[in-house]
Amino acid sequence: MRRLINRRPDIATRFGLMLVPFVIVIIVYMVASEARLSVNPNDKLLPGWSSISAAVERMAFQPDQRTGNYLLWTDTISSLTRLGIGVAIATLIGGVFGILQGLIPYWRATFNSFTAVLSMIPPLALLPILFIALGLGELSKVALIAIGITPFLIRDLALRTAEIPHEEIIKAQTLGASTWQIILRVVVPQMLPRLIDGLRFSLGAAWLFLIAAEAIASDSGLGYRIFLMRRYLAMDVILPYVAWITFLAFALDLALRLFQRVAFPWMFRGRA
């Protein structure tokens, strides 16, 4: 018998094994749902497939009676808009400040401790302040997302920038580069893919802040909807919404990874 650490599944087995936990979760849910519904057909906690698909049909493909909107899509658009703007602002600030903090000794001496302290503030604790200062509209939600992930992005990128081999920076100077030219041609191009990595790791937190902000004060959005539905114990809506949010998060991550492969081929070539 070979050791367990030396035994590797082939492609077909890997694919099958990958599906196993998902299938188990679905089966456990179906069995439990069946059991509860057989005792009480009006049970709301674990709805069956028929009521879930009816809810999806109602939310996604029929106009809402009061507003005439297709709720799942309007919720998705308003949530993704908030997320997109918040994340874009954070990425821009994180990119600029992270590179400066990683590369320029005077900048690092001034701001290193400051960003370290900033990143320790729990962003959700700022939410009341944002609501008071910026009102209950879109601005405070976008601000929460941006404020929540910017310190992480700055610190992550500062570390990555500082990891650029000193030899490269010296070499650029012997080729006559100024500080600005080094930033433009040596540092930024190498840091963009790292920034995307940082962004991928902070997307989970960004979703958390988005849903928290929508839960407290909003009139649309995926987070708003699930917290609204909670009042009616409408698990048949909440469960597909959660699955949809998960899918969106997964798709965003995948899209960023694909973009990285296409846009920065030098990172992936020649790794035999």
Binding site: P165, E167, E168, K171, T174, V186, Q190, W266, M267
Partner: peptide, 15 residues
Amino acid sequence: PDRGVVFQKYSVFPH
């Protein structure tokens, strides 16, 4: 630029 350099490693830009 009057003093060029070649190191053992990391002398060229990977990107």
